[in-house]
C-alpha cells in the first residue's frame, strides 16, 4: 500500500517541545488508564499465583499440571487473545487486563514456588520442631522467607505488564499506546517518542518502588531482589 503524505502536510517538526507541554493533561489521563490496566493485571495475577504456588509446593502432584497450564497461558499471543476476548468482554479495559493477568500469573507462580522451595530445609524442620502448625509455618516463616524471590518476580511482571498494555491500543483500548497509534497515523514522531519515554518512565518508577519495598520488607536479604 502506498501512502502519499506530501511534505506540506507536516504541521509539526520532530521534537516539538511545545506540543509536549501542551498535552501534559492528556498524557496524565492516558497514564492513569495505562497504569490501572497494568497494575490490576499484576494484582490479579499475584492473587491467583499465591495460592496456586503454595498448592504446587505443598501437594507435589499438583505441581506439573499447574506449571504446564500457566506455561500454555504464557505462550498465547496477546493480540489473538485480545481479539478473542472482545467478543466476550467487549471493548473494555478488562479485555486487556485478563490476558495480562494470565501472563503475570505464569511468571508469579514460578516465583512463589521458587521462593518457597528456596527456604532451607533446616529452617522448615526447625520451624516444625519448635511447634509451628503447617498453616502458621507457611504464614510466619516460609512466605516471609520467600519475599525476596517473590518481589523479584513482581518486578519482572510489573515492567512487562506496563510494556504490554501498549499492545491493547491496537484494539483501541486506552493507555499510552494510543500515542504510538496516533503518532504513526499522522507521521508525528514527537508523539511516538513521548509515548516511549512515558512508558519507560512508569516502568522504571514502579520497578524502583518495588525494589525499595523489597528492601524494606526483607532487609535481611543478602542478594537484593
Amino acid at each position: 500500500m502506498l501512502r502519499q503524505t506530501p511534505p506540506t502536510f507536516h504541521f509539526h517538526k520532530v521534537g516539538d517541545w511545545q506540543w509536549v507541554t501542551d498535552h501534559r493533561g492528556y498524557f496524565w489521563t492516558l497514564s492513569r488508564t495505562h497504569l490501572y490496566i497494568a497494575l490490576v493485571a499484576v494484582l490479579i495475577g499475584f492473587l491467583v499465583a499465591l495460592p496456586l504456588g503454595v498448592l504446587a509446593v505443598r501437594v507435589p502432584r499438583t505441581n506439573p499440571p499447574i506449571l504446564a497450564v500457566t506455561t500454555i497461558l504464557y505462550a498465547l499471543p496477546s493480540l489473538a487473545v485480545f481479539a478473542f476476548l472482545v467478543g466476550i468482554t467487549g471493548l473494555t479495559n478488562n479485555t486487556v487486563i485478563l490476558p495480562l493477568a494470565a501472563y503475570a500469573l505464569a511468571i508469579l507462580v514460578r516465583s512463589v514456588t521458587n521462593g518457597l522451595n528456596n527456604v532451607a530445609e533446616e529452617v522448615r524442620i526447625s520451624a516444625t520442631a519448635m511447634g509451628y502448625g503447617p498453616l502458621r509455618r507457611l504464614v510466619s516463616v516460609e512466605l516471609p522467607a520467600a519475599v525476596p524471590v517473590i518481589i523479584a518476580g513482581l518486578r519482572v511482571t510489573t515492567v512487562a505488564s506496563i510494556s504490554l498494555v501498549t499492545v491493547g491500543s491496537l484494539i483501541g483500548i486506552g493507555g499510552l499506546g494510543q500515542l504510538f497509534i496516533a503518532g504513526e497515523n499522522t507521521d508525528f514522531i514527537t508523539e511516538i517518542l513521548a509515548g516511549v519515554v512515558i512508558v519507560a518512565f512508569w516502568a522504571f518508577l514502579l520497578d524502583g518502588l518495588l525494589l525499595l519495598s523489597g528492601r524494606l520488607l526483607a532487609p535481611w536479604a543478602r542478594v537484593s531482589s
Binding site: E122, I125, S126, A127, M130, W220
Partner: peptide
C-alpha cells in the same frame, strides 16, 4: 514440640 528444645545443624535460624 514446644516443650522440647531442638537444635539443628547450622542452627536452622529464620533468615527473616
Amino acid at each position: 514440640r514446644r516443650m522440647i528444645g531442638y537444635v539443628i545443624q547450622q542452627g536452622g535460624l529464620f533468615p527473616h
